[in-house]
Design a binder for these strands. Structure first.
Lengths: 344, 344
DNA sequence: ATGGACGATAAAAACGTTTAACTTCGTTGT
DNA sequence: ACAACGAAGTTAAACGTTTTTATCGTCCAT
């Protein structure tokens, strides 16, 4: 038996397919009684809308492209693991809509740019979600030029206003620095994402301002930019702890680099809380299982991800981007005092 | 300007759209000279195949559904993070094909079953990739009954033969146990996945056989089944280390539970290598950053994931499932000796 | 010469939906 | 009484492909 179509319902009810179509989408052109008949028949025959017909006719794809930047299959680093929860959050946010998440894995920025151009020009999706935004992001310009709906996870600086969701990195670093300074720290290291990423810049600038506020000197040796892998955290601890005047606190941009920093502590024989402390930003609530647990700024990744999903839906409905901008403040979770026992 | 279609090319070349269509798909019915003309015109006008037309006509979706089981947005546990790399591996394997990965995030087994029924009956995809297989998996039966192409990450026991990729859990546990026994361990704990999962059963049975081989008694207090979160690892170490005769080795089924086990060590004041050791299976190469680094069986998740992608493609081409079954043996990485200093 | 087979292309139908344009008929206002 | 109108449906075209069937020469065997 063939799958029923609107034609089936038309024959079943004696109406035309046009009326059936209109009835099913609640057009005001059809009488409530007629609609009831159509709905009844649709349920009776087990009708389900065939998207292919809709897509061809309307040109809409009902796909939301999620661009996921992950390192190539050769490098097996603990990186980008938060994408799993990001994607499921987005997927759930679209659950009650006709939209599906279509996944585009790319290896680097250039590939993401190429993919986006393709999606936009060939209309392979109705909306795009990207992350890893740069201060001046050409991908954003591409999408804006084509008037294509999109939402970014991360802000940009030099682009025209667009829909975004991000953690409030400025505030987070400011509060974090003030708290550490208050606890006696004078040499604070910043393990930062790649410097072309927008949030890397935000964090760095906030860091510098916090130093000024506290009257502390800026030392470039205490700032590192890189891919936020455990290796990155480890190597920077190894290097910085060898300085003649090593840091007593490390601010890590994610849980992966914090884990790596611990590995560096272990290698150098440093004791957390005695020689130095580690603070981090945590999306996955994993820092509580570190030994010892560390102080983190915790933003459950489900929050930004469901917002991203909600925003792309609203953006595709035509809502202006200015109304779809949110900075989320992570919650401070103090798992240790972070005063050095040696300093006291 | 409108996007060019085969009609555009037909007008451009003076041929019919039928010939253009055939020429573009290398049908033997069209003369090579004619084909050359068509190809040239297609390139000149910048023609790209419109999938919506194809989909409506052929009924194919060119979508591969990836079912991703992740805990709901409320629970923010470090769980399922390897999905990110699994998905990107699959996505890359499909890169040169016309297929795209369509993501379906579900919260539990029942939801995945419902989604799969829907995908199969409404033909929302041409192939399905699932994980978390059970010994007797009703989802597999659903797909087989409908003769629907699919590949599983994980084996099943009672189902008819199907395409799968998995780690060789039997061998891994056997080797792992023999190695620990050889190093003097007599009380070995198994931190296992949920007992309804196929690989949980495989691991458990292999564990029991290994005990028999070594002439060691089976103690149910040393085996735990559960969701492989850090919390699970931690709690079981807390419980088991309180036994009158606590284990001297913990075999963890993934890196998340191993991290949690470390957290339990820290809480109890246990020292790795003195009081007990932790061995694990590692997909993400993160155990090297634990303090201290531990011995793991490492299977870079890129390997199974690219196989999954390759297999679903071949399965959709009609290749029989028996030819598409692979068990991958993880590589043993000895990061410490794992002999207890106290035992010697 | 005639018929048939074959090779290359064209014509047309079909996939399932939406929507602009049109018909029909009853109601309303003058 | 009649034009104008509105409500509720219908007709038909269109979206871009693929594929079955038809057409039209050309070549070959008889």
């Amino acid at each position: 038996m063939q799958r029923p179509t609107i034609k089936t319902i038309a024959q079943e009810t004696g109406l035309s397919i046009a009326t059936v179509s209109k009835a099913l989408k609640h057009s005001p052109q059809v009488r409530p009684e007629t609609r009831a008949i159509v709905i009844e028949a649709a349920e009776r025959v087990g009708y389900e809308l065939n998207m292919h017909g809709v897509q061809l006719r309307t040109g809409k794809t009902y796909q939301v492209a999620a661009i996921m930047t992950a390192p190539g299959p050769k490098q097996n680093e603990w990186e980008g693991v938060e994408y799993a929860q990001l994607l499921s959050g987005i997927s759930w946010a679209l659950e009650d809509s006709p939209y599906r998440v279509s996944l585009y894995a790319v290896r680097n920025f250039d590939e993401s740019q190429a993919i986006i151009k393709q999606i936009v020009s060939l209309k392979k999706a109705d909306g795009i979600i990207i992350s890893g935004t740069r201060a001046d992001d050409p991908r954003i310009r591409t999408m804006q030029a084509a008037d294509f709906p999109f939402v970014t996870y991360g802000t940009s600086v030099h682009n025209a206003p667009h829909a975004y969701v991000d953690a409030d990195n400025e505030q987070m670093i400011r509060v974090s620095m003030a708290r550490l300074v208050e606890r006696g720290h004078r040499r604070i290291a910043l393990l930062n994402p790649l410097s072309d990423l927008s949030y890397g810049i935000t964090r760095f600038e906030s860091y510098r301002r916090a130093l000024e506020t506290a009257g502390l000197p800026f030392d470039p040796a205490l700032v590192a930019h890189g891919r936020l892998t455990p290796a990155f955290g480890r190597e920077n601890v190894l290097t910085m702890s060898d300085l003649s005047n090593p840091p007593t606190a490390y601010i890590c941009a994610n849980e992966a680099s914090a884990l790596g920093a611990f590995s560096g502590f272990h290698e150098r024989g440093l004791v957390h809380g005695r020689d130095a402390v580690i603070n981090a930003t945590d999306d996955l609530n994993v820092s509580q299982y570190f030994a010892p647990p560390i102080t983190t700024y915790y933003l459950p990744i489900s929050e930004p991800s469901s917002l991203l999903g909600a925003y792309i839906l609203r953006r595709m409905e035509g809502e202006p981007p200015e109304a779809l901008q949110t900075l989320l403040m992570p919650k401070l979770i103090e798992r240790c005092d972070d005063r050095l026992t040696a300093i006291r």
